[in-house]
């Protein structure tokens, strides 16, 4: 029970959006799909849901190729950045339509969430603000009850309160009915607590794919006087170094050797790790 991506390549003219990506999204886990703008996250999710046609490679959901396969596609729901419903459709009619296509669509839950977020279901989709347009799509995603739930920038335009509410609801949903959730987001710090497994994509290639705890467990930050830090870093895999006056801070990947006197070691969170990794990649 998984989404298996094998040797996936997608070219848009001369631009290679995905380059021979092989990846697996296992059962009942929350994945974070992280990457800079234009890294290929949305393209990857678009191909998984058959919205985009791959140049080469395959995507399988529970062993079935997704291309032109209703059985496979009906197990996957993508909450994308953009609206795919007719703009003159009302929220209420969109719920009715979702109910027509998904027998497990929880209408009562969708209505309850609409009331909770203050979403007017009588409004037309085109009349919704950016934030409420996101909320509308999130509510659909939380109510469809598919085994695979994909979120592409889910909190776009949402205020802090609504973002917090969404993360809580997602966790509640996951605790109640475990499913595979893939969250592609730039707001890493906010989503970090949710993400069990991190996939980092850059320039269409997967550069990290492992449990979040492993990713950050192996990375730490060392700070102290410049000379001491430089000496300590001589045989280490350094991701980034920042200097402020005489103080130097370095992000290091690998085991922690005994620290010399005068240096301070601290843990690195997922966002800091991501930034450090991207800066290291920039230097390559």
């Amino acid at each position: 029970m998984s989404i298996e991506i094998k040797n996936l390549t997608k070219n848009f003219g001369d631009t290679c959006a995905l380059d021979d990506v092989t990846l697996s999204f296992g059962e009942n886990k929350i994945f974070g799909l992280l990457g800079n703008n234009g890294a290929g996250k949305s393209t990857l999710l678009g191909i998984v849901t058959d919205r985009l046609y791959p140049t080469s490679g395959t995507v399988e959901v529970d062993g079935e190729n997704v291309t032109n396969n209703d059985t496979a596609l009906s197990k996957v729901f993508l909450v994308a950045e953009q609206n795919m419903f007719p703009e003159d459709m009302s929220v209420k009619k969109a719920f009715n339509t979702a109910q027509l296509f998904y027998p497990d669509f929880d209408r009562a839950y969708a209505e309850k969430l609409s009331a909770k977020f203050g979403l007017n279901t009588k409004k037309k989709i085109k009349a919704l603000s950016t934030g409420y347009s996101s909320i509308f799509r999130l509510i659909l995603g939380l109510s469809v009850n598919t085994p695979y739930l994909l979120f592409d920038e889910p909190v776009l335009g949402l205020d802090a309160q609504h973002r917090d509410m969404f993360y809580r609801l997602l966790m509640e949903k996951y605790a109640e009915k475990p499913c595979t959730i893939i969250v592609s987001t730039h707001l890493i710090a906010e989503a970090a607590e949710l993400i069990e497994h991190t996939v980092i994509i850059r320039d269409g290639r997967i550069i990290r794919d492992c449990p979040s705890s492993d990713l950050t467990a192996n990375v730490y930050s060392v700070s102290g006087p410049g000379m001491l830090v430089d000496a300590y870093l001589s045989d280490k895999h350094v991701l980034t170094v920042n200097t402020l006056g005489g103080l130097k801070t370095a992000c290091v990947e690998g085991g922690t050797a005994a620290l010399p006197e005068g240096l301070v070691l601290s843990r690195v969170n997922l966002q800091d790790y991501f930034i450090s990794l991207m800066e290291e990649e920039d230097r390559k």
Binding site: T49, R51, D70, S74
Partner: peptide, 16 residues
Amino acid sequence: RSDLRLCLQLGISRRS
């Protein structure tokens, strides 16, 4: 176009 978008959003393949 609008029907295709909606169908793909709601788990129906482009062929169907």
